[in-house]
Design a protein around this nucleic acid. Sequence first.
RNA 1: GGCGCGUUCGUCUAGUGGUCCAGGACGCCGCCCUCUCAAGGCGGAGAUCACGGGUUCGACCCCCGUACGCGCUACCA
Length: 497
Amino acid sequence: MQLLLINMGNNLENIRVRFAPSPTGYLHVGGLRTALYNFLFAKKNNGKFILRIEDTDRNRYVEGAVENLISALKWCNLQFDEGPDIGGKFGPYLQSQRLEIYKQYIQMLITEGKAYYCFCTQERLEALREEQLKQKLPQAKYDKHCLGLNKDDITKKLNEKIPYVIRLNVEPNNKITFEDIVRGRVEFESNNIDDQVLIKSDGYPTYHLANVVDDHLMEISHVIRGEEWLSSTPKHVLLYDSFKWQRPIFAHLPLLLNPDRSKLSKRQGDVAVEDYRSKDFLNDALVNFVALLGWNAGDDKEFYYLNELIEKFSLERVNKAGAVFDLDKLNWLNAEHLRKKTDDEILLMLKESILNSQFSTFNYKDFYLLQIISAMKERVSFVNEYLSKSPYFFEAPKAYEEVSVLKNWNRETPQQLEELKLEFSLLENPSKEDYEHALARVSEKLNIGKGKLIHPLRLALSGISTGPGIFDIAFIIGKDEVLKRIDTALKLINLPK
RNA sequence: GGCGCGUUCGUCUAGUGGUCCAGGACGCCGCCCUCUCAAGGCGGAGAUCACGGGUUCGACCCCCGUACGCGCUACCA
């Protein structure tokens, strides 16, 4: 009976995963993808998603980076259950505040002979490396020089305050094997593994020690991280085994790539979540897009909301190969998500956009903006395109697209537009249809095609040749404005001789 | 150099031994719709499944090798 309750293997009942970035600036889209998969896996399995900051490199610390990371995560709606700002049962969640813990655990390793003090100077290390390089050894490795030190030597050096590091004692001639959910079985030769530094001379742990100790203490069940960690996983496995701790389940995710297939980098475009946010991308679209970079549900569905991703996600369906970040597809997804928003949702965003634009001093009525939204909705991919693609709704045109003038404006046009203006001026509270009928009457009267009137009218009202139906535009800006803009155009547009 | 991982249309991908002379999406091109531009609908071009050997009656799918790419190779994460 009792045996049935004991389950030593990892199972899906107590899922705890973590996103563990180092605070070097902002959230990288690759980091977002890692965070997302962790989040999706946790939520799908009723588990916990934890944010832990790996700030054990004091040289790399960037002011405000943690706040930045958190706000980017929140913008993407990846709410974590435990973390530096909200706390939790397993805190603190900043590694720099856990130094005492690492010291305590490293002592266990030293006692067991699994780790040892190393007093070698930087100079000796460099000389060693150079020598090994000269001998064309397959690989530069520490020579375990300090492993030979006896207790007295060590206490003496310690008392003399000679700087030291603590190294992992890797036993030779072993095979180190582990299972990875996305890669399957992975095997390494212990001879190829260096005696990694675990505690640096400044007393801080390296990533390798800290991540293992914390993952164990925080009861992390699955380590889901980027492929760049695959090569150091055997060191972590060695550490788990040395501590006699159960290993978590590993899943190493494929990398995100530049168009030239190198690792996604700043040089070739935007890499920070913030960059996309400031370029008017929707959080839903970014998350949707990034989710599909390395994972798919096995069907043809491409449009997802976060809750749908949670429902469908599984680590088993994560791909092995790196994925190029294709901006075209992100743009498309953004347009898709934007069109699915309600007009009221867009209204809020549009007002925000106006505030940050050249039109910030104008005061548009919600009712007016809503009309613009319904006219432009299927013509924009980004909220700010309401302004850039149809500025004429926000301000009367001051100039007229040249090619369109050349194409649609001829000697007879002014006369014809005068006629149209007259007909329009007779209208009372005109609807779209009223404008349309009025224009039809004029075209009939002058015996010319409607196009002869429509295109110049479009030019006069909008200054450009693209946009919603011309009668919609007329209706939205209103009769007074229509008449005014025709007058202005008549005055400003002069055909070249 | 060593070790590890990977390789299906330009890109993201489906595919788990026969239903694939390989399906979908983005992008591109054409047609329809139409006052323009979009959106939408329809259609098209686009992959000798990196290459070479096996295994098998049969391989994109399994095995081996090669090439290429990427990652790691720090007292960085």
